[in-house]
Design a binder for these strands. Structure first.
Length: 978
RNA sequence: GCGGAUGUGGCGUAAUGGCAGCCGCGCCAGACUUAGGAUCUGGUGUCGUAAGACGUGGGGGUUCGAGUCCCUUCAUCCGCACCA
């Protein structure tokens, strides 16, 4: 009987679903283990082989932990609010809910084929009102909270209001916008609106005016992590900076805790480093520079980490958005400065980033007074100063800061040197930015080392009341409102212009029906089109929705109690399941999701709903599986094209008649070899990978697929280019070769490999093993289906070991069961226990790729030993079952078991089976030491003693130490392991 | 520029500081065959007929012993990027 994987896999998947084999119970005496995958956004393209990589790894761990006696929570769900469904809705008018449901159904079908042990009863979907009811509820908690610096946690806003009523804000030490001091009496006299505005400065979810990343093409704002290289991460549209009133999250309140928390969790260093960098803590000083003016009594506050260079200041620069710019600019400079400010505002983020090194700025005509020297110092505006960081103003020290140096050079400003470098340095060419050297020309700082000087300078600045030590973070508050339809409605309504949270009883605030999914003609968000809001006409509703990361910032908690209608999850469930023990997902979420989920977790802890502050104890980033694209070469026959400028390229594309030949890659390869560095005189086109097996193009198939090329000639034989013209030689093979390129797996590159196809051709168990076998989990690697036969062959061999008479197996071709109950041999036991040991270690270390090798070695050995002993073959199935659950279930039941193998304990490892046979002989030496001699060669005890004695004489380092073992290598040396 | 990671056969990769290349792909040879995308056996780092020598990006160091630890340098990939 052959290995009928299709039949086996279907049968077992149905049985697991029917019997709910993997349902996790919320009450159990067993220890818990929570394995979580980052849930997917269900896109229309379906899954490709890269998606399940992490799920397979986590499934192996989940199944292993079940065998090991843990109560395992291993859920799956969908992050189902998102842009593609909405864009599809805009184009077709179809409700995004419908597309989303279809996509989810498709995902589920694909996932089911791979045989995951998910507890599907706990599935969550972020776009389900039963789920987002609680996302909205958490938002309201955030709205009704502020961050108290005294208790160093979030507190209820009522506490703050009570304090205001009693004492005003004089004693309040909370994270907030700059607020003027007021008394209790003032507070009571404030209008409702004034009170609301004031509280807004404290709330953790707040409505505030700030510069945001505005994406005009999408008609929405984006968070910092959603912008890459000045364009939107999704869609790649340009992004501008725009001052807008927006719902935001005061994540900055948690900056310090988010930073400190990293030390307590087992995440990779690179990921922690990205978060550290993103949070960007820097210690410095704020310093006030008084403006030199009779009528204006103001000062400019700057932030610096280099207070030691205070005497090197030669000008002060304000960000173009700085409030004081318009106030201080002298009349004769006003026109130029205004023009500059307008120009820099209209520049897109991308433009601004593109010419980072290009200096621009304008003199305001105003001056400040140097707090120590009393000299007057010019004030400039320059867009190299960021409005959003620090105070939006810097004291420029051109001799010791690269950016100030560039600015000073451009405007021919003085560059007074205040530090003597400890190495040779040319101040004409460069600034000396190192925090090393001795201070000069700096009054009371002279002679000090930089680090000491920083301390001393802060002391003096604080003494003169010019400023104080301050900690700044790069992290900005996260913009929370999105001008979009397909997201959670923000549960806020407005009464007389004052925002109020919806009462809890009104939740969920369900996404209303709209006629179109576009913004309105007046530029209002799509929700402005809603007609069926409950209180329409009575109150005004907030029209923006939540961003994609809202629903994913707490979903791990919902899995713990997914059907609860009274709470986001019951206290009992949370106390039992706690936080995630192992979290798997891509590293692209480093500064997005993984920061937000930590933030919300800390907040919920502050509120007393949970008792841990980190969502995941351990996190592993699985690598990306890339696609291998096949390219074919579309050459230019008549036009020279050796110079690879884009202009020429475009020019050629305008002349398709010149572009009517394809040439085999062989010819191009020759060209490349002979003309290193020259751009290829051809255009590479992606070919559907099914049309290029073994780097050879199926020309007929290609023409069928792309009929527009049916009149093109395909030149297989070799040739060469001369002056851009291809000359054939008629040499070489008559095969039309393509070229392989590793790139992202994507529909548009025609290089997608679907897990469904692999399951059909080889089975889910093969897919699972092969994905693991491909290489270390955390590494990115290209998918190459070629190697899969090795893994598939292993499963067939395993099958034969149990089922074919030739292999001495369990059952004959007829299906007759005939397993030997004899005691296993020493060699068989050694093979088994070696494998048990290695597999356990591999899983604990997450090196799943070596596991597969170890299984192969095991089966090869057992086949060679013609092993048919139940005592060996049964435990082997159990340790293999996390990797290949279907085939092991089938064999397990053929061995006569009724119960699912998934619930069987993991076999115990017994060291003695390895040691006994391991050439390890303890011998005594000088009556004191004991050596373990590991011998790959046969030696007598006398010979060993002689060798050890020689070793003792040669290796002086042995003195006073007890060797653990001595390894004798034939013809070589004695290795003594101490 | 800053931060992180990675460099080992034709390829994917493996080696608690202890015989480098396990396992798989590919390739070569053979067996069996209704000639096949089945199965099995043997071989396969480089040079050399061989004994043997040389081999983990380059250079240096620690060590009895280094792919592994330290320093340095080069290359590739991934993040971040005017954060004062």
């Amino acid at each position: 009987m052959d290995y009928q994987f299709k039949d086996i896999e279907k049968r077992w998947q149905e049985r697991w679903a029917k019997e709910k084999t993997f349902a996790a119970k919320n009450d159990s005496s067993k220890p818990k283990y929570y394995v979580l995958d980052m849930f997917p956004y269900p896109s229309g393209a379906g899954l490709h082989v890269g998606h399940p990589l992490g799920y397979i790894a986590s499934d192996i761990v989940a199944r292993y932990k079940r065998h090991k006696g843990f109560n395992v929570l291993h859920p799956m769900g969908y992050d189902s609010f998102g842009l593609p469904a909405e864009q599809y809705a805009i184009q077709t008018g179809q409700h995004p809910k419908i597309t989303t449901e279809q996509n989810i159904a498709r995902y589920r079908e694909q996932l089911d084929k791979i045989g995951f042990s998910f507890d599907w009863d706990r599935e969550v979907q972020t776009s389900d009102p039963k789920y987002y009811k609680w996302t909205q509820w958490i938002f309201i908690q955030l709205f009704n909270s502020y961050y108290d610096k005294k208790t160093n946690k979030a507190e209820k806003i009522e506490i703050l209001i009570a304090e205001f009523e009693k004492n005003g804000n004089a004693n309040v030490n909370a994270v907030c916008e700059e607020t003027k001091t007021f008394s209790a009496a003032d507070w009571k006299a404030f209008s409702e609106k004034e009170k609301s505005d004031l509280l807004m400065n404290y709330r953790i979810a707040y409505l505030g005016e700030a510069y945001v990343n505005w994406c005009p093409a999408m008609g929405t704002v984006l968070a910092n992590d959603e912008v890459k290289d000045g364009v939107s991460e999704r869609g790649g549209y340009p992004v501008e900076r725009k001052l807008m009133k927006q719902w935001s999250m005061r994540i900055t309140a948690y900056a310090q805790r988010l930073l400190e928390g990293l030390d307590k969790i087992d995440w990779t260093d690179s990921l922690k480093d990205s978060q550290r960098y993103w949070i960007g803590r820097s210690e410095g000083t704020s310093i006030k520079f008084e403006i030199k003016s009779e009528k204006l009594k103001e000062s400019i506050e700057v932030f610096t980490t280099r207070s030691d260079t205070i005497f090197g200041v030669s000008f002060v620069t304000l960000a173009p958005e700085h409030d004081l710019v318009s106030k201080i600019t002298a009349a004769e400079h006003k026109a130029k400065v205004d023009a500059y400010v307008v120009a820099s505002k209209s520049r897109s983020e991308r433009e601004r980033q593109a010419d980072v090194k290009k200096v621009s700025g304008e003199f305001t005509g105003a001056y400040v007074i140097h707090p120590f020297s009393g000299k007057q110092i010019p004030i400039y505006v320059g867009d190299y100063v960021l409005a959003g960081y620090g105070t939006g103003a810097v004291m420029a020290v051109p001799a010791h800061d690269e950016r100030d140096f560039r600015f000073a050079t451009h405007f021919s400003l003085a560059k007074p040197q205040v530090i003597t470098p400890n190495r040779e340095h040319d101040f004409e060419k460069d600034s000396w930015d190192e925090k090393e050297g001795k201070l000069i020309n700096s009054d009371f700082l002279n002679g000090l080392e930089v680090k000491a000087a920083i301390k001393k300078a802060i002391e003096e600045i604080e003494k003169k009341n010019l400023g104080k030590g301050k900690i700044n973070f790069r992290l900005r508050d996260a913009v929370f409102g999105r001008q979009r339809y397909w997201g959670e409605p923000i549960p806020i309504f407005y009464k007389d212009g004052i925002p109020h949270a919806m009462p809890e009883s009104e939740l969920p605030l369900v996404l209303p029906v709209v006629d179109k999914y576009l913004p309105t003609e007046d530029g209002e968000p799509p929700l402005a089109r809603a007609k069926d809001w409950k209180y329409k006409g009575q109150y005004e509703y907030e029209q923006t929705t939540m961003p994609g990361w809202a629903g994913s910032s707490w979903y791990f908690l919902r899995y713990e109690d997914p059907h609860n209608e009274k709470e986001f999850a019951s206290k009992k469930a949370i106390d039992y399941w706690q936080n995630v023990d192992l979290y798997l997902g891509g590293s692209e979420h480093a500064t997005g999701h993984l920061l937000y989920v930590r933030f919300w977790t800390m907040f919920l802890k502050d509120m007393g709903y949970i008792n841990f502050d980190e969502p995941a104890k351990k996190l592993i980033n699985q690598g990306m599986i890339q696609g291998v694209s096949e390219m074919c070469c579309n050459t230019y026959m008549t036009h020279p094209r050796f110079v690879g400028t884009n202009e020429e390229w475009d020019e050629e594309l305008k002349h398709p008649e010149r572009n009517n030949h394809f040439v085999s890659y062989d010819a191009f390869e020759k060209f490349e070899k002979e003309n290193p560095g020259l751009p290829p005189p051809l255009l590479e086109r992606n070919v559907d990978i099914s049309l290029a097996k073994n780097a050879e193009l199926n020309i007929e198939g290609f023409i069928k697929w792309r009929p527009e090329f049916k009149d093109h000639e395909f030149i297989c034989q070799g040739g060469f280019w001369k002056s851009g013209v291809f000359h054939r030689t008629g040499e070489g093979s008559d095969k039309f070769k393509t070229k392989s390129v590793v790139e992202k797996m994507s529909k548009s590159k025609y290089n997608v490999v679907s897990p469904d196809d692999i399951c059909n051709d080889f089975g889910a168990d093969t897919l699972r093993l092969y994905e693991m076998f491909l290489g270390p989990l955390e590494q990115s690697k290209p998918w190459n289906t070629n190697g899969i036969t090795g893994v598939h062959g292993f499963l067939k061999k395993l099958w034969r070991l149990y089922l074919s008479p030739a292999g001495g197996g369990v059952a004959h071709a007829t299906g007759e069961v005939a397993v030997s109950e004899d005691a296993p041999t020493k060699a068989e036991l050694k093979t088994l226990h070696k494998t048990i040991k290695k597999i356990s270690e591999d899983i604990e270390n997450f090196s799943f790729n070596t596991s597969v090798s170890n299984f192969m070695i095991c089966v090869n050995e057992l086949t060679e030993q013609k092993c048919n002993k139940r005592a060996i073959l049964e435990p082997l199935l159990v340790i293999l079952s996390p990797y290949a659950p279907h085939i092991t279930e089938e064999l397990w039941s053929l061995l006569g078991h009724k119960e699912s193998i998934a619930l069987v304990p993991f076999p115990m490892f017994d060291e003695k089976h390895l040691v006994e046979d391991n050439f390890m002989y303890p011998i005594s030496f000088n009556g004191k030491m004991r050596f373990n001699i590991e011998m790959p060669v046969t030696l007598t005890v006398a010979e060993i003693e002689k060798i050890v004695m020689e070793a003792e004489q040669t290796h002086k380092y042995l003195e006073g130490k007890t060797p653990k073992k001595v390894i004798i290598v034939p013809k070589k040396i004695v290795n003594i392991v101490v």
